[in-house]
Design a protein around this nucleic acid. Structure first.
Lengths: 130, 130
DNA sequence: CCTGGCCTTGACGCCCACGTCAAGGATTAC
DNA sequence: GTAATCCTTGACGTGGGCGTCAAGGCCAGG
C-alpha cells in the first residue's frame, strides 16, 4: 500500500509517516516511480509506535519496540530493551504523578486559604456551623 | 535596584525579567541612562510569578495574580480572578493526574504481561511457588 | 487532452519560556 | 586611561512532533 492508505489505516497523517522515516523508525520501500510502499508488517510497526506515543513515550523510546518487532518477535515488548523502557517509564510516571499530587495539594490548600479570606466572607464547605 | 540584583534575589535571570516585561507582566521604570529600576513591590510580583511558574502555571495564568497584587491587595490570590485560575488549574491537574494514573496502570500491566512471556521464564514476584 | 487526486522533496511555522550570542553604551575601581 | 562589570536592544537557537505551504511529478478516468 502507499503512504496515504497507511496513514488513514493508522489514523495519522502522511507527514507523520515521513517524519518517522526521517528518524529511521519506519523506512519504506519504493516503487519504480519513487512512491513509498508499505506492507502489513509496517502497519504493525506503526500501530506499535502510535500506541506508545499515545502513552506519552518519546519517539526515541519506541525504537526498541520497533526493532524488536522487526527482528521477528511477535510483540514489540518481547525484548529486554523494551522492558527496560517500560521500567524507566514507570519510574518517570511515578515521579511525575507524585509531583503533580504535591502541586495539587499545594494549590488546593492555597485556594482554601484564599477563599476563607475573601471579602464575601468564608463559605463553609460543610455544615459545621452549629 | 537594577535588573541584575532583582534577578539574583529571585533566583532567576535578567533574560527572564526582560521576557516578563515584554509580555507586559513586569514593566520597569527607567533611570536617566536607560537602566531598568525595580522596587520591593516588584520583588513581590516576581516572587508571585515564580511560585506559580514552579507550580506549572502558564505565564498568562499568573497575570490575574500579578494584577491583583498591583491593585493593592496583600496577596496575589485575594481576587476572584485568581481564585478562578486556581480552580481551573485544579481541574486540569485532576484530569492530568487521572490520565497519568491510567497510563501508569496500562504500562504496568504491559510490563507484567511481557515479563511473564520472556524466554527467561516468568519470574514470580512473591513466594507463591509452593 | 485535461482534470483531479495521489505522490515527491524542501523548507518554513508553531508552541513556550526562556538561553545565548553580538555589538555596543554606562559606570565604577584602580 | 583603562579594565571590569554592569547595562541596553536585537535576533537567532532550543526541543518534539509534527502542520502547512510550494512547486512539481505520476497516473487514472472521461
Amino acid at each position: 500500500m502507499r503512504i496515504g492508505e497507511l496513514a488513514a489505516r493508522a489514523g495519522t497523517t502522511t507527514r507523520t509517516l515521513r517524519y518517522y522515516e526521517s528518524r529511521g523508525l519506519l523506512p519504506a520501500r519504493r516503487t519504480g516511480n519513487g512512491y513509498r510502499t508499505y506492507d502489513e508488517d509496517d502497519v504493525r510497526l506503526l500501530e506499535q509506535i502510535r500506541t506508545l506515543q499515545d502513552f506519552g513515550f518519546d519517539l526515541e523510546e519506541t525504537r526498541p519496540f520497533v526493532e524488536c518487532l522487526r527482528s521477528g518477535h511477535p510483540e514489540g515488548d518481547s525484548c529486554p530493551a523494551s522492558l527496560a523502557v517500560y521500567r524507566r517509564k514507570l519510574t518517570e510516571l511515578d515521579a511525575l504523578i507524585s509531583e503533580l499530587n504535591a502541586v495539587r495539594a499545594q494549590v488546593g490548600a492555597q485556594l482554601t486559604r484564599a477563599e476563607a479570606a475573601l471579602p464575601g466572607g468564608p463559605e463553609p464547605r460543610c455544615e459545621l456551623t452549629g
